[in-house]
């Protein structure tokens, strides 16, 4: 029984960690902000979810389990909301959702023209 729980927990954590990596990779490699949100989404749901479920198996029935569930629920509630707000802001800000070329500079009121660092 213990072994089963252990294996489950290991599997969950390994999977979760893998999803985190995939999501992060997506965040780096995908072309525009709307596409990158998918990468972030993977981390926010599958990555966190699986890792936390894995931790829950470890925790057993205790206060820690309750706290883990709370944190997980909180993230599951807030992350999509935050991403939603961000997407709205990006849309308002003039980012073209159909743009595919990552090198294309997108006009937006606050886009950082000065991102190219100065030699200070």
């Amino acid at each position: 029984m213990v072994a089963v729980v252990d294996i489950l927990s290991w599997a969950c954590i390994v999977l979760g960690a893998g999803f985190c990596l995939i999501g992060a990779l997506g965040l780096v490699r995908l072309p525009v902000v709307f596409a990158r949100m998918h990468g972030a989404g993977i981390i926010d749901t599958l990555g966190v979810g699986l890792i936390f479920i894995g931790l829950m198996f470890h925790a057993g029935f205790s206060l820690i389990l309750a706290k883990l569930i709370l944190v997980l629920l909180f993230i599951l509630f807030t992350s999509p909301t935050a991403t939603h707000a961000l997407a709205r802001a990006a849309l308002r800000g003039g980012v073209d959702p159909l743009a595919t070329d990552p090198t294309e500079e997108l006009p937006s009121p606050n886009s950082n023209k000065g991102a190219a660092s100065s030699k200070t």
């Binding site: 509630f77 807030t78 909301t81 939603h84 707000a85 709205r88």
Partner: peptide, 12 residues
């Protein structure tokens, strides 16, 4: 006017 934000934050 953002319904989702309003509901989630009212809840939170």
């Amino acid at each position: 006017h953002l319904v989702i934000l309003r509901i989630v934050s009212k809840f939170l």
